[in-house]
Simulated scan of single mutants.
Amino acid sequence: MRDLDETDVHILQLLSDDARRPFSDISEAVGLSAPAVSDRIDRLREEGIIRRFTLDLDQSKLAGGTPVLVRLHVVPEHVDTVRNSLREADAVEHLFVSVDGEVTFHARFDDGTIRHALDEFVDFSLVREYDVQLVESAEWTPTVNGTEFALECAECGNSVTSEGESARIGGTLYHFCCSSCLGRFEDRYDRLEAGANTVDS
């Protein structure tokens, strides 16, 4: 498996500035042909580094309610439940969970309905305390500087380093931290596929 190199990082920086940038512009900036840039972007998508191309809307130019920053001090065993509930809420624009289990999110609510809106997607029996602040302005400037590949092994969940292995199994690309994990995964896949074929026969 190849490491994320400087060209990959440069491509990611260009796409983070403008996700609709033509391949011809990117190729000129990084010194590769447009088909080579396309291949690299396809690989970055396949490996899950690029998940989707999206819009960066300036909400201040749109009618959209009051921007707030909400901090929830969640009962530790319920952090995942609260996070999943917030992830589904249309009003929530950014969501963060700290290592100590504090859940913070940026959202927009209609004027005067903040507590009511929170009640719709936060179960306050799972929250110790909370704080709501009005947001004057917000900026979101993700960066790819200083990043490295951080893939998880499909077999054991450990981080995959440059010494790991990748394999296409059943049409899907998987990453493994070592050849042992790759072997175990392939064996299990083969057994499951053989069992499925037996049932179909």
Rank of each mutant, 00 (worst) to 15 (best):
C156Y: 01
A167Y: 02
V160C: 04
D131S: 10
D131A: 02
D123W: 03
T161V: 02
S137Y: 08
E163T: 12
E148M: 04
E152G: 05
V144K: 04
G164K: 06
E155N: 13
W140L: 12
Q133K: 15
A154T: 05
L151E: 06
V127Q: 02
S159K: 11
G146I: 07
V122K: 10
E155G: 03
T172Y: 08
V160T: 04
T161E: 12
S137R: 14
V132K: 09
N158W: 01
C153G: 07
L151R: 10
A138L: 12
G164V: 10
E152K: 14
T172E: 15
F124S: 01
R168T: 15
D131T: 04
E148T: 15
G164P: 05
G146N: 11
L126P: 00
E155Q: 15
N145Y: 09
T147S: 09
R128H: 06
N145W: 02
A138I: 10
E136K: 14
L134R: 14
V122S: 07
E165Y: 12
T161F: 04
F149Y: 09
L126R: 14
L134T: 12
P142M: 08
T143Y: 01
Y130I: 00
E129Q: 06
F149T: 09
T172S: 12
W140P: 00
S159T: 14
A150Q: 12
T147A: 10
L126W: 03
C153I: 03
A138S: 14
V122F: 08
E129I: 00
V135A: 09
R128K: 09
L126N: 11
I169S: 03
G157L: 10
G164D: 07
G171W: 04
I169P: 05
V127C: 06
G157T: 08
V144L: 08
I169C: 06
P142F: 06
E136G: 13
T172L: 07
S137T: 15
G157S: 11
F124P: 00
E148F: 06
A150P: 00
P142C: 08
A138G: 03
E155W: 11
G170L: 09
S159F: 08
L151I: 08
S159R: 13
R168L: 09
E155D: 13
L134H: 08
E152D: 14
E152M: 06
Q133Y: 03
S162W: 04
V132M: 06
G171V: 06
C156G: 07
L134Q: 11
G146D: 10
N145C: 00
S137P: 00
F124C: 01
E165V: 15
E148R: 14
G157V: 08
L134K: 13
N145A: 15
V135M: 07
G146F: 09
F124D: 01
A150W: 03
C153T: 05
D131V: 02
S159E: 14
L151T: 02
F124E: 01
N158Q: 13
N158I: 02
I169Y: 05
S166G: 14
F124R: 03
S137D: 12
C153R: 03
S162L: 04
G170M: 11
A167M: 06
L126D: 11
C153F: 02
E165D: 05
C153L: 07
A138V: 13
N145R: 14
A154M: 04
